[in-house]
């Protein structure tokens, strides 16, 4: 369970998160929508401790992320995150990209790590690409590799930050299919996305962010069908 309690976060004088309260249960798929600069990405990077927070707290399975005593390297092993820019490691093959963290962070042997990596790469449809260098692949393939790389750590939670936004329209589908597959398998996920159709389909709940505030959160039927908040209505009208 991810528990976010009254989290505030500023970059200098700019307050980006203005008191966020949110709980994500095991097995839930939450999508986060909202305008540019509303704090969606920042929330994700706070959840895995890449960014510090100014007040409030975030607990993941009861462990407080920003507590001094928390071993963030350890905690991050159960929170996978995939960014808009997939950040393939260019000097490693696809297989090596996925094997790196299981070997170095989990201490797996080469054989164990390879088994895990092959399994995850097969899962995202890249079984044919094991020995290829990532720069030789399409954006969609690289993004699926990044997903497999995160999954190889056997995370309990997966955070996705607009993972299709940097892709050619033709390649968006294959990545969304991978996310659908994970959702159907019961993975706990928070997906920041601009793909409204996808959000409506896979989400248990949808959260709408506006200027650092979670203005509305509801099941997709309600949020898309009968949005309560004026800003949600405006945002949805603008994206349709």
């Amino acid at each position: 369970m991810i528990e976010i309690e009254n989290v505030r976060k500023s970059f200098g004088a700019l307050e980006v998160l203005k008191g966020i309260d949110l709980t994500v249960a095991k097995g839930e798929v939450l999508t986060v929508i909202g305008g540019s600069g509303s704090g969606k990405s920042t929330l994700l990077t706070c959840i895995n401790g890449l960014e510090p927070i100014n007040s409030g707290r975030i607990k993941v399975d009861g462990t407080e992320v920003h507590a001094k005593s928390t071993d963030l390297n350890k905690l991050r092993q159960k929170i996978g995150i995939v960014f808009q820019q997939w950040n393939a490691f260019p000097h490693l093959t696809v297989l090596e990209n996925v094997m790196l963290a299981p070997r170095k962070a989990l201490g797996m042997t080469k054989a164990q790590a390879e088994e895990v990596a092959v399994k995850q790469l097969t899962h995202v449809g890249l079984a044919e690409k094991l020995s290829v260098y990532p720069t030789r692949m399409s954006g969609g393939q690289q993004q699926r590799m990044a997903i497999a790389r995160a999954l190889a750590m056997s995370p309990t939670y997966m955070l996705f930050d607009e993972v299709t936004s940097a892709l050619d329209p033709m390649l968006v589908g294959e990545v969304l299919d991978t996310l659908r597959l994970l959702a159907s398998e019961g993975m706990t996920m928070i997906c920041v996305t601009h793909e409204m159709k996808f959000a409506r389909e896979v989400s248990d709940r949808v959260a709408f962010f506006h200027q650092g505030v979670m203005a509305e959160i509801a099941p997709p039927d309600r949020l898309f069908g009968a949005p309560q908040h004026l800003e949600t209505q405006k945002f949805l009208a603008a994206t349709h």
Partner: peptide, 12 residues
């Protein structure tokens, strides 16, 4: 972002 990606995977 290369370091960031590595850190997110749990590397020190």
């Amino acid at each position: 972002t290369q370091t960031r990606a590595g850190r997110s995977l749990g590397l020190s």
